[in-house]
Design a protein around this nucleic acid. Sequence first.
DNA 1: TTGAAAGCGCTAACAA
DNA 2: TTGTTAGCGCTTTCAA
Lengths: 350, 350
Amino acid sequence: MTELRRPLTLRDVSEASGVSEMTVSRVLRNRGDVSQATRERVLAAAKRLGYVPNKIAGALASSRVNLVAVIIPSLSNMVFPEVMNGISGELEETSLQPVLGVTHYRPEREEQVLYEMLSWRPSGVIIAGLERTDPSRAMLASAGIPVVEIMDTDGQPVDAVVGISHRRAGLMMAQAIVEQGYRRIGFMGTKMPLDHRARKRFEGFTEGLAKAGIEVADREFYSGGSGLAKGREMTKAMLERTPDLDFLYYSNDMIGAGGLLWCLEQGIDVPGKMGLAGFNNIELLDGLPKRLATMDACRRQIGEAAARIVASRAGAAAQGGAAAGDAPEGGGERVVLTPTINVGDTLVRV
Amino acid sequence: MTELRRPLTLRDVSEASGVSEMTVSRVLRNRGDVSQATRERVLAAAKRLGYVPNKIAGALASSRVNLVAVIIPSLSNMVFPEVMNGISGELEETSLQPVLGVTHYRPEREEQVLYEMLSWRPSGVIIAGLERTDPSRAMLASAGIPVVEIMDTDGQPVDAVVGISHRRAGLMMAQAIVEQGYRRIGFMGTKMPLDHRARKRFEGFTEGLAKAGIEVADREFYSGGSGLAKGREMTKAMLERTPDLDFLYYSNDMIGAGGLLWCLEQGIDVPGKMGLAGFNNIELLDGLPKRLATMDACRRQIGEAAARIVASRAGAAAQGGAAAGDAPEGGGERVVLTPTINVGDTLVRV
DNA sequence: TTGAAAGCGCTAACAA
DNA sequence: TTGTTAGCGCTTTCAA
């Protein structure tokens, strides 16, 4: 194998195969009519040389980039990998490729990441949440590409939106809890300014309780990883502080699972004396001694629906539908999924 | 806000500010000397218009791309998000950006992803594992950029490598187990052809046992997600089949945790009658009723070290060190980290 | 400190 | 079916 001094170009393949650059380009992209004989010669030459096309040049020339920017707050959160899987699963059918950016829940970081990704002129953006800085919103609005905001539908999207209403999710859970006769309810969750969706669930939750004339009896907020251990600690602390609670609502399954394990160890009668519920329906729950009640946030479906929107609009644009920037090109799709309660073993008293 | 018909270019900023394109470019990249007055006019115009530079054109012109391709098998695996965090943490100090590709443990998918990413001419590649198809290896070898293979050091890298010896990890665990007097040992793990690192740990493990004249008494392999539930099922099945086992070694913490929960529910004396160990030292373990013995795979450190190698070499190249393709440019770094056993509560008999 | 010209590697559009 | 020409938006290089 010869050591190369520089990356190969189309011209190298052209010379090696005795076919014009243009025709080589056609062969490699499967565009236009090329005779079988020529095609084979080109392919053979490209393979022999180990040619890898330069998408940068291609993208500049064609002003077409098969990238979709996906911007999420975190990878550690369990939630997002599954959304990602939905997105990539759906995009595999197309020529689009997801490119991931992570913001760590920091708005200014989101701004940077967005700027960075938009400067690659992707074919679309899928971005978590609806809350963002004005500059971020302005960038999205003027990018001239499909923008899908995901996870949450409580707010004003820039363009399309796919998600669930977290407010409604909280409200539904409150109703289910009240229906089961629980009255002294404690809440544990992440510090709110960071996590808007958790905040909205909490707001919906208190609203739901209020309808039954109930207030949250105790609450605690934490920051840092959503671990089992955190759930244990907080649960212990809360029950020592407010021993007469009969229900614990957690803003995510991970801390909920920690709380559940702690309660079971203490020999607390679950769900007889104490009910528990989390949020997200993570796979983990299936393996616990009792299944924590929770709510399915439709993560995979959200990813899939978002990807479909981008793919269909990007496809239409590529096939020469509306000109770039031609006003809201049919856009503004609004997909509101309905989360379902998974009662598990910790909500319904038998 | 005026609706735009096309993406803004440098020329637009140039016209709006009355400064040449070249000088605008200098301002926006902080290169070369520009008077304070000019700089301010340009910046103001760019901001007012909402200009976002086109990196595609920039990259083509400068043949410099601030992207690092990161290729991993899965996002669901717990392991990789933390490696990713290590990588992005380290790259935040530089101008490099990680771009993620996921292979789902499929070699042919790896080949595609690699081809796709290399066609964007990234400044480096960080890729999990050492086992890959010949075409993949060829692409990496001839890309003319730093390549860091991570996680595993048992094998022949293309260029640099950062990781642990999984063979040695398995062997160490075997020794620790034997030292504690366990003799009837069962193994549970993923189906091997998929997961080379799990395979190597298993090989090292059997080798370690063999040194003590012991063989694995029972084994079971599964495919599909590494869930708590899987660990429960398998553990139950194995202990019904081979009731006299006194130790269970799991190829990952998740199934190990499931097994542990099951054993505790059954009232099995852990670690007196039955020891257990997993692999990875995931955060989850801290919240279990007993902490599963495990091994720290140095995930974050691996990500950091890999990113440092890419950053330092990419930096050197950009500053005009060796010409591209100039033979192994100082490369071939080899970072072998040493995993440590975390004995938890399930390995050491008191 | 600023500007003008050339060209990065590819593809669109048109010609043969 | 194949080839030619121009140019995508920026940066490099060189001149002023």
